[in-house]
Design a protein around this nucleic acid. Sequence first.
DNA 1: GACTGAATGCACGAATTGAACGATTCGAAA
DNA 2: TTTCGAATCGTTCAATTCGTGCATTCAGTC
Lengths: 301, 301
Amino acid sequence: MSQFFSPKEVALAIGVSESSLKRWVDKGLIPAEKTGGGHRRLQLDAVLRFIRDEGKGLANPEIIGLPAETGKIVPAGESAQAEFLQAMSSGNEATAKRIILDLFISGMSVANICDLVIAPVFERIGDLWRCGDLEVYQERRACELCGRVIHELRRAVGSGPDDGPLAIGGTLDGDPYTLATNMSEVVLRDAGWRATSLGHMLPFDTLRKAIENDHPHLMWISVTTIRDTERFIANFNVLFDTATSFGCAIIVGGQALTADIRQSLRYTTFCDNLRHMEAFARTIRPRDRVATPITSPEVKF
Amino acid sequence: MSQFFSPKEVALAIGVSESSLKRWVDKGLIPAEKTGGGHRRLQLDAVLRFIRDEGKGLANPEIIGLPAETGKIVPAGESAQAEFLQAMSSGNEATAKRIILDLFISGMSVANICDLVIAPVFERIGDLWRCGDLEVYQERRACELCGRVIHELRRAVGSGPDDGPLAIGGTLDGDPYTLATNMSEVVLRDAGWRATSLGHMLPFDTLRKAIENDHPHLMWISVTTIRDTERFIANFNVLFDTATSFGCAIIVGGQALTADIRQSLRYTTFCDNLRHMEAFARTIRPRDRVATPITSPEVKF
DNA sequence: GACTGAATGCACGAATTGAACGATTCGAAA
DNA sequence: TTTCGAATCGTTCAATTCGTGCATTCAGTC
């Protein structure tokens, strides 16, 4: 839920004076609203984005409802994966969330967080489970945890602009894995889209209905398994035709889509990972927020 | 056409106190009429104009909580269900979360929120889907949304004391429904337990492993479907014996557990709903927070 | 070293907020 | 129409936040 914070709380959380924070808000560095009486109201995702863009730290994260010690120790590159794996397999929810939030605040792109940390760790846990090095319940618990971590990331990213273009997506019938589609949703929201995951196990014809009813400009489909290849291709291409007739682009991705299958498939773009997806999504819908990390200090004002 | 709102409703929707909102109306910031007796009546378009003009941030996801179609904003009692159903089936994430959080803030117990609002609405959506009144994607999207709402509720409840007794649970192999186990987790956390859901599709032997490794004092198991009744009963009773030997209580629940099956089953307690579960959980682990709803206003602080 | 411009933190009175309180009004059932 | 619980009224009060001015710090420049 988008929650409101007062300048005092945010200032305390970041570790600066209330005066400075008020100045930053007035300069437009942190988007904020004002009450009828003129008091500033800050939203969590806006604050996190500011911290991220300006390279600030968090002195007292718990004040704005973040796990303690967030933003203090930034796990550098490789070690983040190892720590995250440890937290995930042991079921340490607080630590797992903290690691991902740390990466987000320190400026790592959402797509990279997903591609380089969450997804590989998740895959590694699957391997460990298949090898018998991890109990079933540990693997299942990690699945649960992963969903919660992504939820937290979605919270940090924010819901995107209300007037942004609509994107919907999910996984197909027979495909119960929600991880990829949930990550896709967050990445698209970060790229300025009004993205909503429809969940998993979606038959083709309901996706057509969704396009007809909601008129999205983008649909992503994650394909992990395919039962009947021929039927899949036929159904998919019909879906693509429906989409194009409504001006909706189709993004596909997933292990099941081998080069052979892709040759018979019609789609707008295929993505090997979420960075590809992000790049494509930004091509159609360029980001309207401050983006370039290098030039931003000079460009200001 | 012209919908009227009370100051209380609008205050809740915008996220300010009723007092402030009344002052703004009196200052003329929001045009409003008065009844013969002096009660303020606000019109929807006037409120929306105020939000647009004063809060120059324009697009505020918070404001989506003003459902023009349904009318009332504050979900009081019965209407909460209807509004929640509307939000869930239309995929309105912000409104759905708002309704549930409002109920929580207003003092409704977590168990009651789950039993009287979330669960019935979820079941109704299933019915609508089976009758063909709802598209598949709407039902799947509602599932997704439901998970997110519960996540938000879990956030509001908090993670419970670190030194609280441990409770773990989930659904059995072949049972893919995570809703019940996730709600159970939140209810138990609210009751002071350090509860962690292990997720869904858990084989019996991994539950035994979990008990041996983590030594929980409580395990909840949600049973929605049973394939082989005899094997189920046999496996379950073995699990129960393992649990008791480790001093772990077993709570079961779910539609699949008919009276016949229950007769052959050994468990600590059977729960028809989450209120039962809460009551039982509090019996073992009396709540250390403010509990009784009647005296709570005085007891605070 | 001295100067400059910008950013920071603190202090101040004025204004706003949110939570009380008893009194009054509303709306629906009897 | 009358009655009664729930909602709203107007008001007060402590706490918070507003906007502003001012002293301090700190790079960068002369």
